[in-house]
């Protein structure tokens, strides 16, 4: 059920768009109304979630230190794993966001009898990295459909991505890598017993939805051979808020657009928000300098303490007997 329901949901969504366009001619709905609505939900939701996090206080400096602190001048300080300045913390964040530094540390723990051993486990890091980078390239590549003239950077990315010139239309490398990475991440969730045990439907759904987006995109390009000129006209229209519909572009296009819309609308309300959350993570984005620079807790309040005066009052005689200095002789 954990996997079945999300799978059913994604298949149903795709079928809905197909049927809606193929038989009910609801292109306006799937090609204009829903994309705009999804984008709106995405933007509003993303900002809402980030603002909500941002409004929570950061009372303490709770950096997780993963290297040598800055202390004595002759002790080699690990500036990136244990930053002591904002610059260092930014560097650490860049490593985390662009290269998944922490995931790169991953180990596999094994038990043989009474022995515990550790092995390398870089597959999750590699799968995650390949997926996210491929997704970025794919997104940038898609900008060619929304911009005229196409910026050199964007067409350059497309050219490099399609550099092997295989087939017509040209095969993009990232189509293969994103598919492979998603397949790996999905397979890992299904096949690794421990990961399967802790997974929720909310973990399978985004993976399957992304797979749906990728597969529908690949199919429309290579199998259904949707006319890209028509697509571009349509996208330019959407981007310039003067939507033009192409009724002849084929329903495969609308399936793809609809699944992308669902992804966008779903994004802010789901775990996919880790994309925004990582930047706010207090254990990673703060320098470990709270002995040098006082961190302020906005809600710090006075508390009841047991003072020395009370302590001395309670133990005065005993303290006197052993010759401890007293504040009050009485």
């Amino acid at each position: 059920m954990k996997i079945g329901l999300p799978l059913l949901a994604v298949v149903a969504l795709a079928a809905l768009a197909w049927l809606g366009c193929e038989y009910l001619r609801l292109q306006v709905l799937f090609g204009v109304v829903l994309p705009y609505l999804a984008l709106l939900l995405f933007l509003v939701g993303f900002v809402y979630r980030v603002v909500l996090w941002g409004r929570s206080a950061v009372p303490f400096n709770i950096t997780t230190t993963c290297g040598q602190q800055k202390s004595l001048p002759w002790v080699k300080h690990d500036r990136l794993e244990n930053p002591s300045s904002t610059t260092g913390a930014i560097g650490r964040m860049i490593l985390e966001v662009l290269l998944f530094r922490s995931l790169f540390r991953n180990l596999r723990t094994e038990k043989r009898g009474a022995r515990i051993s550790f092995g390398s486990a870089k597959w999750l890091w590699l799968g995650g990295l390949v997926f996210h980078w491929s997704l970025l390239v794919v997104l940038l590549r898609h900008l060619r459909l929304f911009l005229e003239p196409v910026p050199v950077v964007i067409s350059g990315i497309g050219a490099v991505d399609g550099m092997f010139q295989i087939g017509v239309p040209v095969l993009f490398l990232t189509d293969i890598t994103i598919l492979a990475a998603l397949a790996f991440l999905f397979a890992r969730r299904v096949l690794a017993p421990r990961i399967r045990y802790l997974s929720l439907p909310a973990d399978y759904f985004p993976l399957l939805l992304l797979l749906g987006v990728v597969i529908s995109g690949i199919l429309m390009r290579y199998a259904f051979k949707v006319d890209m000129l028509q697509v571009k006209e349509m996208m330019l229209g959407l981007a310039s808020l003067h939507p033009q519909l192409s009724m002849s572009a084929g329903s495969a296009l609308y399936v793809h657009i609809f699944l992308v819309s669902v992804l966008f609308a779903y994004f802010p309300w789901s775990k996919l928000m880790h994309a925004g959350g990582i930047f706010l993570s207090p254990t990673r984005n703060m320098p470990n300098n709270s002995r040098q620079v006082r961190h302020i807790n906005p809600w710090n309040y006075p508390v009841q303490v047991h003072s020395y005066v009370e302590y001395e009052d309670e133990y005065r005689e005993k303290m006197r007997k052993v010759g401890l200095p007293l504040d009050k002789e009485g």
Binding site: A57, N106, R108, L124, L198, H274, G277, P282
Partner: peptide, 24 residues
Amino acid sequence: RMKKYRSFRLFMDVCVRCGACADK
């Protein structure tokens, strides 16, 4: 506590259950 601790609210929200922590 969600108002007082960004860590708490954030850590409730952003876990993707990748399992990297599981055997640590």
